[in-house]
Design a protein around this nucleic acid. Sequence first.
DNA 1: TGTTGAATGTAGCAAAGGCAACACTTCACA
DNA 2: TGTGAAGTGTTGCCTTTGCTACATTCAACA
Lengths: 156, 156
Amino acid sequence: MTPQDNTALPDPPPPAPDEEAARHASARSARASALTEDYVEIIADLLEREGEARPTDIARRLGVAHATAIKTIARLKRDGLARARPYRGVFLTDRGWDMARKMKARHQTVVAFLLALGVPADVAEVDAEGIEHHVSDATLAAFERFLAHAAQGDGR
Amino acid sequence: MTPQDNTALPDPPPPAPDEEAARHASARSARASALTEDYVEIIADLLEREGEARPTDIARRLGVAHATAIKTIARLKRDGLARARPYRGVFLTDRGWDMARKMKARHQTVVAFLLALGVPADVAEVDAEGIEHHVSDATLAAFERFLAHAAQGDGR
DNA sequence: TGTTGAATGTAGCAAAGGCAACACTTCACA
DNA sequence: TGTGAAGTGTTGCCTTTGCTACATTCAACA
Ligand SMILES: [Mn+2]
Ligand SMILES: [Mn+2]
Ligand SMILES: [Mn+2]
Ligand SMILES: [Mn+2]
C-alpha cells in the first residue's frame, strides 16, 4: 500500500528494457543449471572419496527422495554428463568431470571469499551453495583477486 | 573419466551429511522464491515510476510471454503479495511492498558491492540478478561493511 | 458511434523437479 | 545355500514455469 521510504537516494536510471530482459533470462538459465551442477559436484566428490556414487547417497546429500535423484541422474545421462547402468552406480563422463572440477573450484572460492569478508562459517556455506551458480568468470576472478590481496595484506 | 588435478590442496573435511542436506534444501528454497522476488521488485518499480503495473510491461521486463506473467501474478495474489482485478493492473499488498523494498535494497547493495570489487558493470548487473536471492542478512551486512570501508578508505 | 488494434485473459501443452507407494535386485550372513 | 534388509528402479501424482494459440475486452479515433 505505502510506496516506500525514499530517503533521497540518487535513484538509478530507468532500466533499458532489452538489457533487463536479457539479465533476467541469464539468471533464469543459471537457475536451471544449478541443480545439475550440484548433482555433478556431489557425484564427483563421492567417486573421489568413496570410489562409488550410489543414488541413495546422492539423494541423502541433497536432501531429496531417492526416486527424485534417480530421475535427475537419468537427465544427466541424457545430457551426456554421466553414465550409469542399473544397480551399478553412477559415473561421470569427461564433460561431467569438467563441470565437477569447475564447480568444486567455484564452491571453494566463494566460501573462502565469504569467510574472508567476515561471514560466519555456517552462513557462508549456505549462501555459497546458491551463489556459486550465479558467479560469472569475471566475478570469480574478482573474488580471487580479493583473496590474494587479503592474504598478502593480512600481516600489514 | 579422469578424476582431477589435485594440486596438493588441504582438501576440506568430509561433509556432515545432515548439514549438507540442509544447505541444499535452503538453496532450493531460495531458488524457488527467486522468481517471486523478481516479480515483486519489478511491479514495485513500475508502480513507482509509471503509476501502474500492467501485465504486458511486467512480462517485457522479465523477458517472458505475457501469459506466463499473468499466471505468475495469479500466484502472487494467491500468496497475498499482490492484488489485481481483470483489466485493472497489478498492485502490491503491504507484504508485497515489504518484499519489494527488501529486494530493491539487496539488489542495489549487491551491484554496488560487485562494482567495488572491480567487476565490470554489465557483468555485475547480470550476476547480481541471481546472487541477490541467495544473500542472507549476515552476508548482506558483510557486503555493506565492505562498502563502507571502501568508501572511507578510498582517499588513502 | 463503429471499428479495430493493443492489451488482457484463457486453454492446452510440455518439461523440470518434487513426493509416496510399490516392485524388483543384490548381497551379507545365518 | 537361503533369505531378508538395503538399495534400486518404476509408477503415478502434483506444482511450477514456460510456451503457443485463441478469445475477449478496452479505448482511441475515424
Ligand atoms: Mn550449489
Ligand atoms: Mn556446491
Ligand atoms: Mn533477481
Ligand atoms: Mn533484482
